[in-house]
């Protein structure tokens, strides 16, 4: 009698078929497969459970798992669509798709708004704006006087808050970004357009044994 040894393909938790993700995102099937390789590398870097934890996200971004950064935290939280503290493969691909050059600008504008709406109130409030400016100054070790920070925040609020209700709503944000498109530059990663060319090392077998 013959005996076959079969290799069981084991995917990460929350794995979704590349064809399904490609249909919903700006990526092709082979790009989603390449992203799976990237996802596996990040999600097995510390906890080795096939899910990206915040420390693994920080390690990938900063080569330091303990480096806290307000904006990286916000991006992690927005990638974590299920709000369970980790990013699974589907969340990773869907969220990265926002940063694809072919993704509609409105989607990028909406994502950036949620990013800056630190307390998820539906508005970017003056205090949030000030908190973000202070975080950046702290990160970059730039020193601006309190008066100058207040002036910059006040001026920006005045500029964006067209109905003068003291906070920035999504319509005001959209209008402001349309006049200042450079504000969206962080929302596009040019190399996502052809991951398989830019990162040939990600292109491996689409059926990978996690063992």
């Amino acid at each position: 009698m013959g005996c076959w040894l079969s290799k069981q393909v084991k995917h990460t938790p929350g794995y979704e078929e590349p064809a399904v993700l490609a249909a919903e995102t700006a990526f092709t099937v082979s790009e989603v497969e390449a992203l799976y390789e990237l996802f596996r590398k990040i999600s097995y870097s510390i906890f080795k459970d096939g899910l990206i934890h915040k420390e693994e996200f920080q390690l990938a971004l900063f080569k330091n798992s303990k480096k806290n950064n307000l904006f990286a935290d916000r991006i992690f939280d927005l990638f974590d669509l299920k709000r369970n503290g980790v990013i699974d493969f589907g969340e990773f691909v869907r969220s990265l798709s926002v940063f694809h050059p072919n993704t509609a600008q409105d989607e990028k504008i909406a994502f950036a708004f949620r990013l800056y709406d630190l307390r998820s109130t539906g508005f970017i409030e003056r205090e949030e704006l000030k908190e973000m400016v202070l975080a950046l100054l702290n990160e970059s070790e730039l020193c601006l006087s309190d008066d100058l920070v207040e002036t910059i925040v006040d001026q920006t609020c005045k500029l964006v808050d067209s109905n003068s209700d003291g906070k920035i709503d999504p319509i005001e944000w959209k209008e402001f970004v349309r006049k200042n498109p450079s504000l969206l530059k962080n929302m596009t990663l040019p190399y996502l357009k052809d991951i398989t060319m830019a990162f040939p090392s990600f292109v491996m077998s689409s059926e990978v044994d996690d063992e």
């Binding site: 990237l38 590398k41 990040i42 996200f57 390690l59 990938a60 971004l61 900063f62 080569k63 950064n69 307000l70 904006f71 990286a72 935290d73 916000r74 991006i75 990265l96 940063f99 800056y116 704006l129 973000m132 400016v133 975080a135 950046l136 100054l137 990160e139 970059s140 100058l148 002036t151 910059i152 925040v153 001026q155 920006t156 500029l159 402001f176 200042n180 450079s182 504000l183 530059k185 962080n186 990663l189 190399y191 830019a198 990162f199 090392s201 990600f202």
Partner: peptide
């Protein structure tokens, strides 16, 4: 002063997702 707070914020290294790709190559 003609500084826009959002322009300042966008300078954060936290927005640079290229690290995700570089670190994993």
């Amino acid at each position: 002063i003609n500084l826009n707070a959002f322009d300042i914020i966008s300078l954060s290294s936290g927005f640079d997702l290229s690290g995700l790709f570089e670190a994993s190559e």
